[in-house]
């Protein structure tokens, strides 16, 4: 719970700093500025590292489990 509160506080502080208006979002709207710009690369990499390492997750929930680990 402490971590969630910390997360929310961080967001609140950052939100207070941001003054970007809709008409200033030309760069942010570019596909290259997407949080996950290469979705297939990301999915394939997640699968590789899930099968070779003991950590997983971070970016979202769901996704197929696998007998590889």
């Amino acid at each position: 719970m402490k971590q969630i509160v910390l997360l929310m506080l961080t967001a609140w502080v950052l939100a207070a700093c941001s003054t970007v208006q809709p008409w200033e979002k030309d760069l942010l709207a570019k596909p290259s500025m997407a949080l996950v710009a290469d979705k297939l690369d990301n999915a394939l990499d997640e699968h590789i590292y899930f099968s070779k390492e003991a950590s997983l997750g971070g970016q979202g929930v769901g996704g197929g489990g696998c007998g590889c680990n």
């Binding site: 997360l7 950052l14 941001s18």
Partner: peptide
């Protein structure tokens, strides 16, 4: 799995994401 996240526009050129899983 449970996840809580915040995505924030920092400035005109910067986007930031925080996730807690």
């Amino acid at each position: 799995d449970l996840m809580f996240g915040v995505t924030q526009v920092i400035d005109r050129k910067t986007l930031m994401q925080f996730n807690l899983g």
